[in-house]
Design a protein around this nucleic acid. Structure first.
Lengths: 239, 239
DNA sequence: TCAGCCAGCTTTGTATACAATGTTGTGTCC
DNA sequence: GGACACAACATTGTATACAAAGCTGGCTGA
């Protein structure tokens, strides 16, 4: 499974832990909706794909479980998480509590370099959208929110938002009503302008509205086509 | 290291994963200030204490690293985390953002059983304090905050608060100015009353003040007697 | 025919072995 | 005497082996 004996062949310059690489790859796949909620994540299978042992895969899955991207069931394995509607509501309520304030702070702290980076970000988003790569666009739009939290120099909150974004991605996969232009880059564009001008009040307001729009674009009343793995669907909590 | 062959001897009724047990034990020790910030957490050593292999210890440490109770340095091992003063400020700012609102919601939702449990909680806190077990009192006072988040039916936020409480415990260990009656149960008592009466506005206000008091009881200006492991101190970020 | 049970297979849980890295102490050379 | 180099040791990183639990499918007996 690994080239057996080849002393110090790879020499990762950055010493990236192998489990980080795997966790990142899985996370990306989930964010881009290539792995859908409910998908079984077998340890051997993943290990084969990335050429690592189950030890590594396990560590990666544990990490993803902690941010609730995957759910681990004892002796049954790991699955891409399927947030319930209640959880979905909680996630968006929490975002509505954290992000507007964070946007405000970001607006007051952003440097030119930060603004430049945000603009670049949006350009990528557009490009992905134009290329029809909806998964990638969604992922990038999530990164946009995380980036703002980073600018606000609130690493703690940024970490939380990262978790919330991750779950949002799952929630959108499950409950997105229309094939909406979610996180339509229009809203992001307006946000950047407010941040560039240092207008905290406005940025806060824009962020709040943006999140409310996202929230309302979800159908949290009836179960919308749950794409869970067949027999697993029958065991899970709420039908 | 484990009783080698004894088929199904223990039969944990709840199927508690072994790593959960270890993580819980370590977490408790940190919360109770029996393990101080900077302490090296050797894998073999911990494994011996709890009679498990390094596999389990590793999983436990990873979990604690995720909630930032411990810091893992590649190829060097795990240490009880030492939040910087900047991080300390962030943690309390975030708590001040999340908890008052949560207390408000808890006040509107609390059942009689919830209130009863909270009162019981405070009684334990008092008992620990009277017994001179300051570490245990501190731990219990943290649980109090988590319990309130649970009552607010916001599992997501409750999870975040749990993390924040954990780090607060480290912060208090590092930066507590006076041997203050931190989280003096007086404030908790008033909070319970507001919650019992369903007075959300009041609860929110009390919680906000309570947190500000806690925050101000910290000395975040100069480095207060850093009990870090000797040579490690010289490598770390800020002196 | 169908419910229940048991055997074999598959997958996860945990321990252990080995490799790689970091640390420490000693010896040598200048 | 002090700085560097290197070897012995200690600790972590990863792979693998084995044990335990769950799943599947076929068998049996009503």
């Amino acid at each position: 499974m690994m080239p057996k004996s080849s002393p110090t062949l790879y020499r990762d310059p950055d010493r990236l832990a192998a489990s980080d690489r795997v966790a990142g790859a899985l996370s990306l796949a989930i964010h881009e909706h290539r792995l859908l909620p409910g998908t079984k994540l077998g340890e051997d299978e993943i290990g084969e794909v990335y050429g690592v042992s189950r030890t590594i895969v396990r560590a990666a899955l544990q990490r993803l479980a902690h941010i609730q991207l995957v759910e681990m069931q004892r002796n049954r394995g790991a699955f891409v998480a399927q947030p319930s509607q209640q959880e979905a509501r909680e996630v968006f309520e929490t975002r509505e509590l954290l992000e507007p304030r964070t946007a405000h702070k970001a607006a007051t702290l952003a440097t030119d370099a930060d603004v430049y980076r945000l603009r670049e970000h949006i350009a990528l988003e557009h490009a992905a959208m134009d290329a029809g790569d909806r998964g990638r666009a969604l992922h990038l739009s999530g990164l946009f929110h995380i980036d703002i939290a980073g600018i606000a120099a609130q690493a703690t909150i940024a970490g939380f938002i990262e978790t919330l974004i991750a779950r949002s991605s799952l929630i959108i996969a499950l409950y997105s009503r229309r094939d909406s232009a979610l996180c339509d880059s229009h809203a992001h564009h307006a946000l950047i302008e407010a941040i560039a001008e240092g207008d905290g009040q406005h940025a806060e307001e824009l962020m709040r509205n943006h999140l409310l729009e996202l929230h309302e674009a979800l159908d949290l009343h009836q179960c919308a086509a749950p794409p869970r793995s067949l027999k697993d669907a029958l065991l899970s909590r709420e039908s």
